[in-house]
Amino acid sequence: MIRGRCWKLGDNISTDHIISGKYKFSAIDNLEAMLPHVLEEVIPEFYKKVAKGDVIVGGKNFGKGSSREHAPRLLKLLGISAVIAKSFAHIFYRNAINIGLPVIVAQTIPEVSETEDIIEIDLANAVVRNVTKGIEEKFKPFPKELMMILESGGIVEYIKKYGVPPWVRSTE
């Protein structure tokens, strides 16, 4: 069960909002150095305010723009435990699953949630709850392979455990 405080963001949060392209090259081998810049134009000093387990709740088209994987990696590194949004850009979605950051498509929760609300996510039963508001929503469960990746904490962890990616394993 994931449980954390909500950070409510709007529609069209791009990977540039999450981490501007201008930092990408100056700190490629040191993600930590980029942390102070995460979402800096959206929530000033986000890196200081965020706490481990917090959940981001966005609107439509979350993670649009550049394919930079630094975006979900940095969110995870800051302690974000899941991102909920009405829809995701597909590269961000894949990247997040790959690094073991749950990404949940939901419609009601993004409507009703406010920053500071308490959010709970039950991945196994595909339910997301806004505890503060007392509202819950079912979401489409993850296909088996993707669930296995999330449970392992990312594709790299999965491969370390089983030797190959789940799809290679299932065709062997």
């Binding site: 994987e69 961000f92 990247n95 990616p165 799809w167």
Partner: peptide, 18 residues
């Protein structure tokens, strides 16, 4: 298909992707 770095890495390593 545009992908991120980990996806590309897996495709390079195994030649297969979902």
């Amino acid at each position: 298909l545009g992908v991120g770095s980990t996806d590309a890495a897996i495709a390079i390593a195994y030649g297969k992707q979902w």
